[in-house]
Amino acid sequence: MKVLVAVKRVIDYNVKIRVKADNTDVDLTNVKMAMNPFCEIAVEEAVRLKEKGVATEIVVVSIGPKEAQEQLRTALALGADRAILVETADKVDSLGVAKILAKVVADEQPGLVIMGKQSIDSDNNQTGQMLGALTGMPQGTFASEVAVDGEKVSVTREIDGGLQTVALNLPAIVTTDLRLNEPRYASLPNIMKAKKKPLDVKTPADLGVDVASKVKTLKVEAPAARSAGIKVGSVDELVEKLKNEAKVI
């Protein structure tokens, strides 16, 4: 079975972001970028499926700027077989990404699509579900366990009250939660080998997808800062302040 994995290049999760002075966006110049953490988990899960003999080929795809090739090479170093970059100059919203992925799915015919549950920049948590709608595939979102069994995949999902298990007909889409697995590190020999693996570059126009968005960002602001608090010296003082000053207990 072929597995398709979608990965996104985002700001590194440790970076403290800055909002641009003109409030148009977040400042990304000279900021460390990395693979979205949920996407790393998706790649790891695909590689584990290959190691178990369930997956035969792993195709990794990214939609974004030329530099997203770095993240695709990382995925190749982790065990993906080949990569596709759909290069776009402008930001593409989740619906646009889902439409591009739907074309890639139509071309590649994967048995399973694995992607992160959300990117840590836009925090949308939409693309996997949208791809499900566009392809008609069932979805196992927020997965903490995935087991392929014949023509079905069983997905344990993290829901508000605990866990839920669903059985999906293949082909299906799985979006990863943090507890699905612990991603491995790429070894230096694998990083060298990854440089020789195939990486195709396409554009949305090649795929016949219009990615124009009807949602405009009017303004990006820093959130209201909390005023600095005080340090108390003892539990007594804490209880006293909560009772008489903050009046919350």
Partner: peptide, 19 residues
């Protein structure tokens, strides 16, 4: 909620609108 987040993007794509 986990249900809302699971369902609504699928609805948006079926209606061909952003979410």
């Amino acid at each position: 909620t986990s249900n809302g987040k699971n369902i609504l993007p699928r609805v948006a794509a079926l209606l061909d609108v952003a979410q």
